[in-house]
Design a protein around this nucleic acid. Structure first.
Lengths: 337, 337
DNA sequence: TAAATTTCCCAAAACGTTTTGGGTTATAAT
DNA sequence: ATTATAACCCAAAACGTTTTGGGAAATTTA
């Protein structure tokens, strides 16, 4: 049974009030007393009970994040980095991070929101993989729960969060490909409900248009953001009567799958066909050949999101509620570098 | 301000006791009453305040896990899968998962243990990347906090957790390499303080011994479990007067870095030099060439760990407190398949 | 009909904090 | 020698639940 504030108070013949205030750094406790309190609290191994403190303070010092996992294990390194960033930033601010998994739009996801948000288990939520019509945002705004999102949903008012400038990223990427002589440029996207798919697909079209390339409908395909999905989509593309000479992928994992499919055909990525990804996961530098990608600083983004959320939570109005981040084009051998 | 149990009780002219018991499924409340309670609770959007419940129940229904992150982002897909497994299993049992990051043996790590364990924020902890002398285990056993570990630390008494059978795994792997004519087999390990490094290094030596191969000291090297580390270690190995013909790596990420280094020399992995990993992360099937690896079912392991921890938490004695899991050897092109 | 049992409900205590609103000494100002 | 001020300290009231130990009314049993 861990020591309570009463134990500490009794040991010192003080009131619990004084102990509490001494530890919390209030000015109305004598320096000597504070010393003794801190010393014996330390000696007795006293740490305030979180539940009691939360109950009284009406705040939990905890943020929530739900990993958009479909049934079964999944391993996009993007999320390791994202969670690492969230966890690190939270720890730095003495906040805790609650994590769970739920398939998008599942009953479990809703149940989690009820438990966490309505049950007051978290003070705020971090959301990514924003959807076009996203009930999570409605849920949170209705209840006035602070939250930040990685990409902005169209309907979203008073958006606080970060957006990656896809348009300029894809512009640069496609320019690079066109420079290298490509004009049959395919696109492997993700689920249509996702904001990033919408954006990247649109940016892809815009970039083609800028370079006076007519988009070929058969070169527009979708997968599920995994290597396996990229493998299948690329297989389809390679089976086309007139296959593409370059493939732009919605994320690095998809690109890795696509490269695998290409190699399996005996073709050489970078020479016979160009492949590009998006994310800049650490592995992308070590694939064979190394992957050209639009690198977004996931770790930094995650930390910054937490920072914004905490500012918002503490009632400060953000000078810049919407941050736009430029991805940087890393040209590597997979596009013939 | 979310609705409390008092609001519900008032709306129904019932006592809060009855509301509480109705929702918790006690038998001593009339069927009709229970209906009404559930209905209005639902209508009012009532969800029990977690802090209050935790305080009273003296349990939090929350487990803790600390990501062993060094400063800066890191992206071993192993951890995405591990966390996904933990999160999924927790969610299924209506438990929550608290996650943070801390560098091993750092002050932050200790602070987290105090906040979470002594502050009663979690009911139990999940530990992996076990160390040879691991204060975390002492901390928890001293305070009688339930916990499970992925690998057993040498000093650990009453070990509850899972161990992967590395010995048999490495035996099979080395046999496979010897079969293909290799005898200069190098090893790229990880930090010496880690249990897995100790085990895998020992298993590597044992497997060599079994095949009457004398271990060459210069072929034994260590990195830091990242692709970058693997890249550097492999570079060192390739620079040797008499380089190895095969490289066994402590994990897949290291192997990916090693493959990169090999390609950069103009050598072909699988033909000129064999590379093998450990983990079986999803990407390993899509590297070029696909990576031979010892596949451990991380997702399943994580879920099972949670299951064991919860059993232990609920006072059940585990029939099998120590589970041993066999990794399966996936032979792919990186070893000349 | 009286006693025993069952059915349904509730008041009050407890969980461990933080915060409010003073209160009691000692010190400083008049 | 008062009175104001400052420096320390504390009792009690929350925070929102769950649990304990009944208690009253309805039903069954004798």
């Amino acid at each position: 049974m861990p020591a309570t504030i009463h134990d500490v108070a009794r040991a010192l013949s003080l009131s619990i009030t004084t102990v509490s205030r001494a530890l919390d750094g209030y000015a109305d406790v004598a320096a000597g007393t504070r010393q003794r309190v801190i010393a014996t609290a330390q000696a007795m191994g006293y740490t305030p009970n979180r539940a009691a403190r939360q109950l009284r303070r009406r705040r939990t010092d905890t943020l929530g994040y739900i990993l958009p996992a479909e049934e079964g294990g999944f391993t996009d390194p993007f999320f390791t980095e994202f969670i690492a960033g969230l966890g690190d930033a939270c720890a730095k601010h003495h906040y805790d991070l609650l994590v769970s998994t739920a398939a998008p739009n599942s009953a479990q996801e809703l149940a989690l929101y009820q438990r966490w948000v309505q049950g007051g288990k978290v003070d705020g939520m971090i959301i990514n993989r924003t959807r076009l019509a996203d009930w999570r945002l409605d849920f949170l705004t209705e209840r006035n729960i602070p939250h930040v999102t990685l990409e902005q949903s169209p309907a979203q008012k008073n958006f606080i969060g970060i957006e990656v400038d896809i348009e300029s990223g894809y512009h640069d990427l496609v320019a690079h490909l066109v420079n290298r002589g490509h004009s049959r440029i395919a696109y492997i996207g993700g689920p249509e409900m996702l904001k990033i798919e919408q954006d990247r697909c649109a940016a892809y079209h815009l970039a083609l248009h800028t370079h006076d390339i007519l988009p070929a409908p058969e070169l527009l395909t979708r997968a599920n953001l995994t290597a396996e999905g990229g493998f299948q989509a690329a297989t389809y593309l390679l089976d086309l009567h007139l296959p593409p000479t370059a493939i732009v992928c919605i994320n690095d994992l998809t690109a890795m799958g696509a490269m695998h499919a290409i190699h399996e055909r005996g073709l050489k990525v970078g020479r016979d066909i160009a492949v590009a990804g998006f994310d800049g996961i650490a592995d992308s530098a070590h694939t064979q050949p190394p992957l050209t990608t639009l690198d977004q600083p996931v770790y930094t983004i995650a930390r910054q999101l937490v920072g914004m959320l905490l500012q918002n939570l503490n009632g400060q109005t953000l000078e810049v509620p919407q941050v736009k981040i430029q991805p940087t084009l890393r040209i590597r051998a997979s596009t013939g570098g």
